[in-house]
Design a binder for these strands. Structure first.
Lengths: 182, 182
DNA sequence: GTCTATACTAGGATAGAC
DNA sequence: GTCTATCCTAGTATAGAC
């Protein structure tokens, strides 16, 4: 198993269980690799795993969300496309989000900056699209933040109520939220 | 130390560290009680602690959020009042939310129902106020869900970006969000 | 690169004295 | 109701063979 193939597996674990909830034994079971093999790939242990997952996420966010928004196209169409990708990426809210798990507790302090970086890049890309659509910079920023708030809050509330229609509705409302403020 | 005084302390721990992030040793340090004293109060250990914290939260939600919304008064005024209470309750977003910590991971499965119950009571109370203000039942429900999504998402995003102005803005926008849909 | 075996620490939980 | 002492398991991490 290549290291590149390990990361999606690790991502899945961290988003489901949170940093503290993941043990090396869990990782071993999920990947099929023995503990020593894991330490071969990640000499600094679990902390390194989380850091590499966050780098992986950063790239995924850039590739899946930021790049399409920066490409040529109508603002509303690009945001609609983003909504669809989001639904898939989070499996309509069933998958939860890394942010929850990796910003909770003191053990997660080392990851805060990396989490913020991915989130910031995403917000900025949405804000740029909103500016492209004619909004002021200030308003665009606020709407972009509102979009991410809706996404993250949608994940939390959907999971808590076990009602994934809620997340679907949130995802689909994003273009309106950003461009029309509702 | 009375048991009643322990619960706010435990609440603080769980919302900061999440369920898995809290150890009995942490609790012992935070409360000043030895392990055995803790097991005297909570014979079933950490799981019981979390359950009692959730009961405590349920009462707090009813008292702080639901009851004021059910009282006599103008819908917009009641929601404005709720916004202020929310800002204080979450210390403007610095305190994080139990939902994150207690719905993450398999260890948290036993709490899901209780978490959902508190959240549901709160959403329902907001929806009732919206109906009172003239909205249809369906729309009121959606707006109430949107309010809780904004609150929870606001907590996640504020914490991730370490920008607590974001949460303040969310809290203050709630009456508009519910009554005017923006 | 992966395994088995092992060391060590931290976490959960209990017994029994006061 | 609280303490000290102790037990056991799970968790992190490493050594060394293949």
């Amino acid at each position: 198993m290549e290291k590149v193939e390990l990361l999606p597996e690790l991502l899945e674990l961290f988003r489901q269980q949170g940093y503290e909830g993941v043990s090396i034994a869990h990782v071993s079971k999920a990947t099929g690799l023995g503990k020593s093999s894991l330490y071969h790939h990640f000499p600094e242990g679990k902390e390194q795993m989380a850091k590499e997952v966050l780098e992986y996420i950063y790239k995924a966010v850039k590739q899946n969300f930021v790049a399409p928004l920066k490409a040529e196209g109508e603002p509303r169409e690009k945001l609609t496309e983003m909504s669809k990708v989001i639904e898939g990426f989070y499996d309509s809210g069933r998958k939860g989000c890394l942010i929850d798990g990796l910003t909770l507790g003191e053990a997660s302090a080392p990851f805060q900056q990396q989490v913020a970086q991915s989130l910031e890049a995403w917000i900025q890309a949405i804000a740029d699209v909103a500016v492209e659509a004619g909004l002021t910079k200030k308003l665009a920023r606020e709407r972009a933040e509102a979009a991410l708030i809706a996404i993250q809050g949608g994940l939390v509330v959907s999971r808590a109520l076990r009602d994934y229609q809620i997340f679907k509705r949130v995802a689909r409302s994003l273009p309106r939220l950003v461009l029309d403020g509702q």
